[in-house]
Write a protein that binds this DNA or RNA. Sequence first.
RNA 1: GGGGAAGUGGCGAAAUUGGCAGACGCGCAUGACUUAGGAUCAUGUCUUUUACGAGGUGAGGGUUCGAGUCCCUCCUUCCCCA
Length: 919
Amino acid sequence: MSERYNPHTIEKKWQDRWEATGLYRSKVDWSKPKHYALTMLPYPSGDLHIGHWFAMTPSDARARFMRMRGYNVLFPMGFDAFGLPAEQAAIQRGIHPWRWTYANIERMRGQLRTMGAMFDWEREAISCTPQYYKWTEWFFKKFYEGGLAYRGEALVNWSDALQTVLANEQVIDGKDERLGQPVIQKLMTQWFFRITRYADELLDFSLLDWPEPVRIMQTNWIGRSEGARVTFRTQDGQPLEIFTTRPDTLWGATFMVLAPEHPLVAHLTSPEQAEAVRAYQEATARTTEIERLSEDREKTGVWTGGYAINPVNGERIPVWIADYVMISYGTGAIMAVPAHDERDFAFARKYGLEVRVVIQPQDAEPLDSATMREAYVGPGRMVNSGAFDSNLSNGEKGRKNPAISAVIDHLVREGLGQEAVTYRLRDWLISRQRYWGSPIPVVYDAEGNVHLVPDEELPVELPEDVEFVTGPSPLKTHEPFYNAGNGLRRETDTMDTFMCSSWYWYRYLSPKLDTAPFDPEEAAYWLPVDTYTGGAEHATMHLLYARFFNKAMRDLGMFDEAAKIAAAHGRDVETMFDEPMLQLRNQGQVLGAERVGDFVLCEGYFEGEKLFAQRVEVIDPTEAPSHFGGVMGEIMKRVEKTLFVGPELRLVEVLDDAEIIIPRVEGAANVNQLLHHLDIQRMSKSKGNVVNPDQLVATYGTDAVRAHLMFAFDWQKGGPWDETNVVGVVRWLNDMWDILLTTDFPAQGNPQAERNLERALHQTIDRVTRSLESFSFNTAVAALMALRNELKTAVRANQISHAAFREAASAVLRLMAPITPHIAEELWQRLGWPYSVHAQEWPAYDADKAKEDMVELVIMVNGKPRDKQLVPVDIQQADAEALALASEAVQKVLQGAQPARVVFIPGRKGQEPKVNVVT
RNA sequence: GGGGAAGUGGCGAAAUUGGCAGACGCGCAUGACUUAGGAUCAUGUCUUUUACGAGGUGAGGGUUCGAGUCCCUCCUUCCCCA
C-alpha cells in the first residue's frame, strides 16, 4: 500500500483517454440491441449546480450499466438555450443574448465534462443556433400546412406601463415585477398549436412505462368531460349555447351565467343594468385567471337585465354575468343548477336566486330547496323534470348514467342539443412577444393574410444589431427585421421555448445534418427514446408537448422513411413512432436547508464559557425575558447533548438529568427532541445556499461526488443537501483502493472463507443489478459498501488465495464502473486487465453461488418474533412447524394448549423461512 | 384554488412491495494506536427496563395468522400548475 488513492491524478487522465479513444462515440450498429438514454438538457444559466449533477450522474450510471449489459447506448447532451433570462441579462447588463448564452454554454460544457459522464459530445445540440432553430421553424411550417397551427385570440398579461406582454412568472399579485404597475388581461391575436386534436390519444398511456403520478397529472390536465351541448335562446330567439356534464339536471336550471367577455352580453343587457355590467366587465379585466378560478373566493356577478328560455321546459330564466365563468372554457356560458352544483348554489344563495331540486336521493332525507345548505351532487331519481321524472341518475358520468343518456337522446331527437365532449386542455399558445426565441417563419401582407416563408429562406434569423431596453421586444421596432419587402410585414413574435425542447432528442440523432431535422437512418435505429430522466416539474407541460409533437410528426409522415428502414432491419414498426419516450423516471430535487431552531432558556452552572444546563425550556422568542442569567437564544446547531445557542454560538452542555420542557411535546421531553436551526429550501443565488459542484470535485474528486449523490438520497425523492456524509463515500473509495491493491496472499486459501466471499459477491451482483435496474442508486452503493466490509475482513485475515481474490476483484470493479468510472478504470488497469473496464460485460449472477446453506428459521407467536433456529435453507413445512412447536419460547406461551393455527412462510428469495404460531 | 408526492432513530436512509423495522452510511460513545488527530482500528448505538421483558414507522380507527406497506378519518410538510 505504497500509494494512496488520489482522485485528481487519475480522473483527468481517464477523461482524456476516454475522449481520445472515442469510448463514448455512439454509432448505429444493427448487430446489437440499442438503448437510447436521454436526460433533460439544461438551460445555460451560467453555472452547473448540484441539481444538474443529481439529475445527470445517476442517469449516466444507468446508461453505463445498460452498455455493460450488451446494449449499444446513446446518451447525448445539449442546451435548451432560448429564454427570458438571456434577454433580461441583455437589458440589465447590456450583454447581447448571444454572447451571454454562448459564454455560459462554454463554461457549462467544461463543467459537464468534469462529471465523467459518457455523453457523446459529437451529438451536442444547442437550440438557439440557426442550425437548430431552422428546423424549429420548419416544424412550425409543417404544422401549419398540416392544419395544426392557427391564429386565434387569447388573453395575455398586458402591462400598459411597459407596453409589453408579460410571462406569468413576471406578474406578481397582479403587478409587473419590474415597476410594480398594474397588469391587465387583454385579448390578442396569437399563434396556437392544435394539441386538443390529440386529447383523446394523449389520454392513452398503454405503451408507456411512466410514473403513475405523471399519468394522473396528464389525465387531469387534459380533463376530458362528457356531456351535452344544449342550445338555450335569448328572449328574442338568439341561440345561446352551453355545455353541461349534467344534462339530467336541465330542469333545475334557474338562471344562466355568461363569462363577462361573452359576445352576447351587450345584446342581453338592459339599459338599467348597463352601467353595472360595464363596471363589472372592467373589474374582471383586472383580475387574473388564478383569482377567478379560486373556489375560496366569494362569487360575484351582475344581472344583465336579460332573460333566456330553457329549451326543455320553455321557462324564462334570468341571465347573469360572473367572473367564475371563463370565456376560454367550453362555450363561455353555463346553465346554473344551484341545487346540484356547488358554485351555482353559492351564487344563488348570495343573490337570492331560485333553487330547484331535480334529483332526489333515494336513501336519505328528501331535499328541500328552501332549507338545503349545500348543493347535492350525488345519485338519485329525477323529479320536477316532466316526462323524465323517476329516471335514475346513478352518479356516473356520461353515457354510463342512464338519466344523462336518456336526456341526451331526447335533446338530439328534439334538435335542442347534441352529445359532446370537452376538455380542460386548451390549444398550445406558442406566441411570445420576446426577442430571444425561435422566429415564427411567417409574413403578413397588407390585408393581414398569412404567408409562409419559403423553405430555402429558412431560417429566419434573429437580427444581431438590436438594442435591448425594458419594454416591447426589439423585433417590433427593428425595421430591417419586420420589413420583409414587397409590402410584407414579418411576424415579430417568437416561439415558446417549449417548442425548442419538444423535438431535441431527434436533433441529437444528427445535429449537423443540413437537409432535414434528423437522419432517418439514425432514427430507424435509435428511436424511440428508451429511458428519459428528469425533473417531475415537467410532468404536464413539457412531457405533454413532447408527446403531441411526436404524434403530429408521425401523422405528417415525418417518420415514414425511418419506418421503412427499420422494417427492412426486421424491427416491428407498428407502434414504434406512437410515443417519444417509452420509460420515464423523475428524480427529486436537491434542496438547500432551512428551519428555525427552538428558542431556549438554559439554566445551570458555568465552567468558563460553557454552561452545564440543568434546565432547558423552549419558549416563544417574542416572550423572551430582557435579562436572563443563563444562556438564551435560538439553537443554531446541536450535536447530541451539546447545543450551540444564538448567533454567538454559546456552548451549552445539557446534563443527563436536566429538566427539558418543550411545549409541543407532551410530558417529559428528551434532549434529542430539541430542534436546531436548519435551512431547507430551493437553492438560489439570492439565498446564497447554492452548492458549487466544482468546489466539491476539487475537494473530493468526481467519483466521490457521483457516489455521494447516488448514495445520500432516494433519487426519486431528493432532499436537503448535506455534505457531512461525503466522508463515508470517500472512506469506501479509499478502502477499495487499498484492498484491491493488496499484493500479499497465502498460497492456499481457506475454503470456507473463499466460499463466504463468493456467496457475498454473488448476492452483491444481484443487489446491484436490481438496484440499478430500478433506479435505486442508493441501495446499489450500499450493497457495494457491504461487500467492501466482507472483502476487507477476508483480505486482512489473509484467508483467500490470489486466484479467488482476482475473481472477486474483477467482478467488483465491473460493478463499480457505472457509479465511479475513474477509480474502477484505474484499478482495472493496475490489476493488469486490458482497457477498458467500461467495455466489459456486466458480471453474471449465479443464484447457486449466492445461496446460503443454513438460515435462521424465525419462530413467531401471533406475528411477534420469539425464537430463532438454525436450519437448512430448504427446510420443509412439516419440519419447520415441528421445530417451532417444540421451541421453548413457544411452549412457554402455549402452556400445553393447542395453537389455533400454524402458518408457515417458506424462505423465498433472500428471505428466511418463518413460522407463525397463532394462539 | 386545483393537482401531485411524502411523513420511519440524533441525521441521510433501507425494508425484495403484506412476512425479524432501522440494511448501508454519517454522527455520537467507549477503548486502542499516535508527538498530534477532523487519520486509522475495535466495540457499541430505536425507546424503556438492573435484568427477564415490554413498546415502537405523524395521530386515531379498521382489514389480516401477520401492517411501515392495504382501507377510512384527521394532522403536518414539500412540489407543480393555472
